[in-house]
């Protein structure tokens, strides 16, 4: 099949970008979307043009590295990652517009590659249980109801791709942040730091200039891993109860 591409090209974060059009004649319906871009890049290099930069790694839908805003939707027309999207989802002769994720917190590095380190910094702010290696109780010491464990897993399935931010009209990262907050709020292991965690992660999220959630649900609809909006409600609840009840204890030292 034939397709036309309109791809965002941008040299680096300091230069202005623009769309460039390309045409591909021999696209197989069995190709994945990224393989189609591989073919384009192959052609471009042979023409002496620099290839289109895009992020990708595992190409099996789990690493969260691939992105792309395809025809107005993150990861394209299906609720999956771009690497799992195949060309049979498009029509012969179709024009496909490919843009990078757009968010103030995700600056474009080059072409379709964006900087998502804001996500890492949010996790660093508190997305963990403070246990050192070794000296932990036996794995079966604390029983956890299967339902709770399953729910925690559902939240933990987030791959950190950023589609929620890309899809949200407010560029809000709440689905991402709430998934981690939820996972650790549900599990007994996360309970001791529950309050500090949500306060710190929300503060970092705001510091990164993500938008505020207006509950449109676009994030949930586009999330390739089906992370639910329930997480956001849980984070809100955790946050209000934390901020209104947590307090600091001053340490005097001397031990």
């Amino acid at each position: 099949m034939k397709i036309n591409l309109k791809i965002w090209r941008q040299k680096n974060k300091d230069t202005k970008g623009s769309f460039k059009s390309y045409a591909l004649d021999n696209v197989s319906t069995d190709m994945s979307f990224l393989e189609m871009l591989d073919v384009l890049n192959h052609d471009l290099i042979h023409k002496g043009e620099e290839s289109v930069a895009f992020d990708h790694d595992c190409r099996e839908g789990i690493c969260g590295m691939c992105s792309l805003y395809i025809n107005g939707r993150p990861h394209g027309p299906q609720q999956t990652t771009t690497c799992q999207l195949h060309m049979r989802s498009f029509k012969d002769g179709e024009t496909i517009v490919i843009e990078p994720w757009r968010a103030k917190a995700f600056p474009v590095i080059r072409d379709l590659v964006v900087d998502r380190t804001a996500f890492d910094r949010i996790q660093q702010a508190g997305g963990y249980v403070s246990v050192n290696t070794g000296g932990v109780p036996d794995a079966n010491e604390i029983a956890i109801s299967k339902k709770i464990a399953d729910e925690a897993f559902d939240s933990a399935a987030c791959i950190g791709c950023g589609a929620c931010v890309a899809a949200c009209k407010n560029a809000s990262a709440m689905l991402f942040v709430s998934a981690k907050v939820s996972q650790l709020a549900l599990l007994p292991q996360g309970k001791p730091e529950r309050k500090e965690r949500v306060e710190k992660m929300v503060a970092q999220m705001d510091a990164e200039d993500f938008g505020a959630c207006t509950n449109t649900g676009a994030c949930e609809a586009e999330c390739p891993k089906g992370i639910s909006l329930t997480n956001i409600a849980r984070m809100n609840r955790e946050y209000f109860s934390a901020i209104t009840t947590s307090y600091e204890i001053e340490l005097k030292g001397g031990d």
């Binding site: 025809n71 843009e99 899809a167």
Partner: peptide
């Protein structure tokens, strides 16, 4: 605030999959 969060360059094409009234 939310407008600013999108950044200076917005999307050229957008097919937002949320309900119209929510947006």
């Amino acid at each position: 605030h939310n407008r600013r969060s999108r950044g200076e360059v917005g999307y050229a094409v957008s097919n937002n999959s949320s309900a119209w009234m929510s947006r």
